[in-house]
Design a protein around this nucleic acid. Structure first.
Lengths: 210, 210, 210, 210
DNA sequence: CATGAATGAGCCTTCATTCAT
DNA sequence: TATGAATGAAGGCTCATTCAT
């Protein structure tokens, strides 16, 4: 891999020409639209406003672009979630409510909603990437959630329950929602609103854990 | 589409040559391994023990094979679930326990576990198929689950809750488990066992709904 | 080549099953419709009411069918033309008029109108067949026509002119007409009527030769 | 269709690499040799000195190459004929003599002699192209010829005769000659010389029309 | 005689990747 | 740094031909 996301060469001037970040942004759009295999580098290039060959100035190829995309776009958000939890003062149930909303905004409503679909689709073809995503994204998020459950159990808010497993119960409906939105909602349908489902989820879960 | 799954011409003799069913079985294996796009028809043919050209005796092409696979392999199991619910005598909580176990066996432990990944991966490329899967599989399963919730609410077992949304909460951890198993579990890891998660899920859910 | 046109096995019973003649008739229709290369043996078989494999009971393959078709369908008509001329009693101009009409009926209005197009299209791929057609069809017809011109010159009806070349002038408009009909007349146009052109042709020609 | 024949980007330097024009020239040779269906794009590419894939930089596929070939190579010559007639000063008979010679050079002796065979062969498979050829080539040439006949009739050189039909009589021997040359003349024969036939044709025709 | 089933060879087309400029 | 041009490799699909029954 030749490039990191942090573009190395801005000199204060307003950027005109496309750098690695623009390429990754373009790649996200194109990959999200058709999946990795059917995505054509030509489209990524056009979307980024550069030539196909120029992609190779920044990345080693299609696969490298995909990997860089995943590595760069997701981890910062995980860190943000970890920070949110680390700084939390209130009770565990409220934290859980907050976190589920936060993850929901990220994974269902933002541009990042394309990732779960993409990762799932290409996991078999990119084992390394899948493991990266598992350890750096999924397991870290699960870890955060498990810590909340642990805290709630310790404080007596929740009944004793395996925190690792409970964490999985927390994110499952979020995964469901994002895949539902990115795979099954037709264009002619009213915009998918995950809020009611997430509300019911968090309340049922808190009640179930209580 | 040229072929239905039920081959019409067996005469009691043990079939040696590969028919549509064998092709679909082979296709399931190959598609599950690499995804639709990277799957090569040549591999499907070899796996089925026939020539590439012979595939075209039964199906109109790669896409048709994929569609036939989805259409033929999943719906019967949906019907089995519907039948299970229709004939149920006991209380709703037990039915829910049973159903979750049944779906788990199907979608996590059987060969069918490849489908969620495949469908998710190819939804954008096969909108019709995605809609077929949504209406004929997902929504029917959700409908079954919603009816159970409704029944439980009516009988006083469960507190009032939107059945349609609740149904989504029921399957979400099942979806999570399948995708976890098919995408992220490494070969060198101990065999993935969904049972603990599903146990916790069903008990927490029932408690949350109570 | 394994079969001749004359079917060998009729025993007086009304024929039900398709023999070589039926195959050639079917082949003529199919070849005429799409040309040799795009014609599929499967269509020939269906058109003949037999299986694809059965074609090989009578012919050695696609090429052989095409060759048999050409060899069988055209030569008899050449012989008929030769007979017409051999038995002619009247003057040369009338004979020419008659012959042009006769050839016109054959080559423009009958099923045989497909041949010129087919032969022209495939001449490069079937050099032997092209030579066969040249010597057994074209040159024999040219010979007949040349003999008429010779006779007319000898009798003083026509001015001295190279009979071989003149013969080519005689058939050229017939070739034009058949190709026009089989290649350029659209289906939505009124049926192509070659009569006016042929009338003008023969009168102009006779006047030109006089 | 993606390319026009007139390449837009020469900068005075001697062109080394093959452009659309070279491809069409190569395609003409290959198609002329084996006909459209049997022609392999690989041969066209090799003949043009480029790779198979490079063909797709300029054309959308085999069919597009064929269509571009027909559209680009023939029409300009039709326009040249029309100009010849428009500027003619002498009598109609001489014009006719000149025009037949000109068409003969084009259609029998130049590289274009392959077109009639090709068009005839593929008319059924390319109805649009056949109609294009009919309206843009054949009918325009026939129109030119008909105008000459009309002029001759008006001036009293020719007896009254349907100009449209007469025009067909004019080109018929030219068509015959081309097809004879491209389909039936063997390589081991002396070079086909159309001159005697065309001489006889034009003199006989003029005499017949007089 | 007849066929359903099967196949091998061939070709068009796509696209990630390279390279001279 | 940037690109237009070019390509090699790969895969889906077709169809004439064969063969066991």
């Amino acid at each position: 891999m030749r490039a990191t996301t942090s573009s190395t060469r801005r000199r204060g001037r307003p950027r005109k020409i496309a750098g690695p970040d623009d390429i990754l942004a373009a790649a996200l759009r194109v990959f999200a639209a058709t999946g990795y295999s059917r995505a054509r580098l030509e489209d990524v290039a056009r979307e980024a406003g550069i030539s196909k060959a120029a992609l190779y100035l920044y990345f080693d190829g299609k696969q490298a672009i995909f990997e860089a995309l995943v590595r760069s776009a997701v981890v910062p958000n995980v860190e943000r979630l970890e920070a949110l939890v680390a700084g939390w003062q209130g009770n565990s149930a409220d934290l859980l409510r907050n976190l589920i909303q936060a993850i929901g905004r990220l994974v269902i409503e933002s541009e990042l909603s394309a990732f779960p679909k993409l990762i799932v689709a290409e996991a078999a073809n990119f084992p390394d990437l899948a493991q990266f995503y598992r350890t750096q994204v999924i397991e870290r998020v699960l870890g955060v959630l498990a810590s909340i459950v642990s805290r709630g159990v310790a404080s007596g808010e929740f009944r004793p329950a395996d925190p690792a497993l409970s964490a999985r119960l927390v994110i499952a409906p979020l995964l469901f929602s994002t895949l539902w939105k990115t795979c099954f909602v037709r264009d002619d349908e009213p915009r998918f609103d995950p809020a009611p489902l997430l509300s019911l989820h968090v309340e049922t879960l808190i009640r179930g854990l209580a």
